[in-house]
């Protein structure tokens, strides 16, 4: 098992090195393609943390993408800030929006929670479309040359000897890759911690969790805010490359939530590598079936149903069941020997 783990870590390190080196060796179109994949991966990892580990099946994650994107546009257009500062503001704005959203949504459970979050996201879309300074319902574009004038673009341009546009693409790609790696590591550390254990207990049985001292509201609210921040950052970063924002695009339930749910479910909901596997499968299907129009969506739907029926833990879960190899195990293994009674079984009065 240790050998498998070390081999896995070596492979992951090599893959990561290759991914970071990509803008220096690959054509710009490939970097842009991978940026799109990484965007979906970050969104899927955030949604997986929320639904797979906290039991909060949100269908309103597009609200945080939209809020993040619009906050970033506002920071650039209205406040004249650097886009990278705008991205950070996008993340913070999404987390702030999550506070009143949680206040409303946490009164609901299960399917009602899912519908409730969707409704809140749509309300946010309608409200944003009234923001005339950012183009109202028709949206707005980034001022010409904004991406090229971002911090660090000149240095990257010199380093890679490429155009300003390619350097801007490389910068946003590296930031999205770093965000994906950051979310993966943070998720692993969090889920292995005391709070992560409590979160999984809440997912399995909230009433029983409460009866052993876990505070469900506090833990779920924390995860909701953290994933809102991650999703907001991702949304803001994604729209730097898109360069144009409209309420319909920024708050699209299909692009930012439905595909993300599909990726997580087929990859393996409730497992950390699941979204990585899911996004790879999604990308392959997109490539293979791009010319077949609606058949593409039918195949996606059929695959999702098949996985839900025959491999409920997704492709990664299937792989673990068949091979016993888990590269990012979250289980706490019991110690082999009981040496002594380290703590009193009854607390003192």
């Amino acid at each position: 098992m240790t050998l498998n783990r070390n081999l896995g870590l070596c492979l992951a390190f090599l893959a990561l090195t290759a991914l970071y080196a990509l803008p220096a060796i690959a054509p710009r179109a490939m970097v842009q393609d991978l940026f799109g994949i990484l965007t979906l991966l970050v969104l899927a990892m955030n949604w997986n943390l929320l639904a797979g580990f906290a039991g909060l099946v949100s269908v309103g994650q597009q609200a945080f993408v939209g809020i993040g994107a619009y906050a970033m546009f506002a920071a650039i257009i209205l406040a004249g800030l650097d886009p990278l500062v705008g991205v950070l503001i996008g993340g913070i704005a999404a987390a702030l929006f999550a506070v009143p959203m949680a206040f409303f949504a946490f009164r609901l459970n299960g399917a009602y929670f899912a519908i409730g979050t969707w409704v809140v996201a749509d309300i946010a879309r309608l409200a944003i479309s009234q923001w005339k300074a950012l183009g109202g319902g028709t949206g707005t574009s980034l001022p010409k040359g904004t991406a090229k004038e971002m911090a660090f673009v000149d240095q990257i341009k010199e380093l890679l000897d490429v155009s300003s546009a390619a350097a801007a693409d490389a910068l946003t790609y590296w930031l999205m890759l770093s965000l994906a790696v950051g979310v993966l590591i943070a998720s692993y550390v969090f889920l292995r911690s005391r709070m992560g254990l409590g979160l999984q207990a809440i997912r399995d049985n909230e009433n029983a969790a409460r009866s052993v001292g876990v505070d469900p509201v506090k833990l779920k609210a924390l995860v909701f805010l953290l994933t809102a921040f991650g999703t907001g950052l991702c949304g803001a970063l994604a729209f730097i490359q898109i360069t144009r924002v409209t309420p319909d695009a920024a708050f699209s339930v299909i692009d930012w939530t439905a595909f993300v749910i599909f990726i997580t479910v087929i990859g393996g909901i409730g497992t950390l590598p699941g979204p990585i596997v899911g996004v790879a499968v999604f990308y392959l299907l997109q490539r293979l079936l791009a010319d077949y129009g609606t058949i593409y969506l039918i195949v996606l739907g059929c695959l999702g149903i098949a996985v839900m029926l025959f491999a409920r833990r997704g492709l990664w879960g299937l792989f673990i069941d068949r091979t016993g190899i888990d590269l990012l195990p979250l289980t706490h293994r019991p110690p082999r020997m009981v040496a002594s009674r380290p703590a009193a079984h009854r607390r003192s009065a």
Partner: peptide, 10 residues
């Protein structure tokens, strides 16, 4: 009411 996806130890 066990935490069904967690092990007995967990």
């Amino acid at each position: 009411q066990p935490f069904g996806h967690l092990s007995v130890y967990e």
